[in-house]
Write a protein that binds this DNA or RNA. Sequence first.
DNA 1: AAAAAAG
Length: 653
Amino acid sequence: MARNDTFTGSPRKPTRPTRPRYLPPHLRPQNAGSVFPDTDTPEFTRSRSNRFNSPRTARPTGGGRGRGRGPRIPVTITNRQNANWVSDEKFDELDVTDDSSEVTNGINFDAYEDIPVQATGENIPAPMKAFEEIDLGDALKQNIKRCKFLKPTPIQRHAIPVAVAGRDLMACAQTGSGKTAAFCFPIIRGVSKRRFSPAGRGGRAVACPLALILSPTRELSCQIYEEAKKFAHGTGVKLAVAYGGTPIAQQLRNLEKGVDILVATPGRLVDMIERERLSLRMIKYLTLDEADRMLDMGFEQQIRKIVEQMDMPPPGRRQTMLFSATFPNNIQRMAADFLSNYVFLAVGRVGSSTGLIVQRVELVEDMAKRPHLLDLLSAQWSNGTCTKVHLISAFICNAVVLAVIEFSGKLEHALTLIFVETKRGANELESWLSRKGFPAVAIHGDKIQMEREQALRSFKSGATPILVATDVASRGLDIPHVAHVINFDLPRNIDDYVHRIGRTGRAGKCGLATAFFSEKNMSLAKSLTELMMEANQEVPSWLSQYADAENYSFSGGGRDKGRFGGYDFRKGSPSRSESNYYSRGSYNDHSPVPSIGDYHAAAASTSDGFYNDHCSTSANADYWVDNSNASLYAAGPHQYFNSYETVVASGWE
DNA sequence: AAAAAAG
């Protein structure tokens, strides 16, 4: 991929890659992907059985999408396993093993070769091209290899050097693009170098971890813990997890054994600290995953308490890293309190995370939602003997896109995740679906932890291929084979929508997201329209009309076009309305640093109509700006078709 | 105005 290399070159040297000729997907080289293998391979079979055998496993976040423009040709969307993954028997024998090898290998790296990256801050460390460029330690390197992380994802390429340089970081990258590994690698590296220092590490009674990773839900903490454990295998780094809903005794015992990296949800963490079984005084690394959520209303006080009033070293004496797929300005502003001279990274446009997710919105009255869902699921089920699931036939970019989500015989691999508004609604839909003969299970915060985990296990394994969920499942969870996310009730917040649909289309694979839009969702019309347009999804005309009707666009409901990569609020103009949730700041004609928004505007004005029509980018965007304290670099022209092309190339019809 | 996070 020569044109990709133009991007990964040294940051010191501005590169001006030549624009590749646009090549229609059907004319592209047949060896483009080698992803999407025949699912009858022994590897696939084995991975499936592993899933049944170890259902509690967490999975690495993988893959990503980069391009936002949809295809103009008929394509086949499959959700089958990628071919790249190869089983590693040795890794399978590890005590921490699970079926993750299939996932880590399932990353479709080609799907996110060229995406815009914005990096701001002082003296930003250069991105890396390969893991080998950074001294991560032998054991960690070996684990990375075992996981088949052959090549870093963009967020990893950019975030790891920053983190390894000891810099604070605020990072914004698409759902499923490998954020967990991006913060785990540097932490494990740093901790394994420190842990041999003789400094008093606390006695048996009070555990003093060197690193703390906070996340907003128990299941997500669990997942991060499981994944980090794999990365830390053989490094001597000790991990522990702390979350509520489960007896604290075992977790405390694990703390006593010594812990270098603690993964936790806030409540149980505070509990442990107040019991004086845990101290944060030795913390050198603090990570907030889903950071915007963690600093959202309802969570902020708790996080502030942990970070500012619990003996944790202040900013500057610890390294703080914040990660999320979404980062509203007001949250950035708040988060700055926790950071010291930080680097801001925005990898790809958040909205473009949906590039591989076909988004549909349907106008459905509340009363009609259930029958409509039934129709949808019935079509998907194809009379119960489901070897092929013909899911959607949608119009995208004026062209008919026949998207066939096809699975290898087993129904359980077509997982459908249904989001609802309330816990009660989740219960009701669960039992209603069950009565209608659809194997569904619900997950929400009123269930006891065991039920929650059981529901997730049952869903992951395919035993219950329909999961009805509240927002407890909207963030971070990496569930392979989720082919369809249905927003039975739309969320109030467009960011929640982004996270919800991000449960599908992970690891560079395609996915489908269907939303039932009712009158109650009018306030979402504008931001939803903008998001879909950014991802070049077909926006129904009725939705556009709602969006245009200013009556319905409540203040703060919209996002500025082009904000989707996230913008460093420090670059924003103070004069700009603070209330504008997604105010993108002061990039203007005089700004030395073009914003990603400007970047796309430039793309739209190029003369190469054909190229632009299809890929919505241009050679104009292939610049490298390196100012003293800010740099924005854009990749070569986006290969929006890339992952579709690999599908087509692999012979799917 | 819902959900999540301690018990």
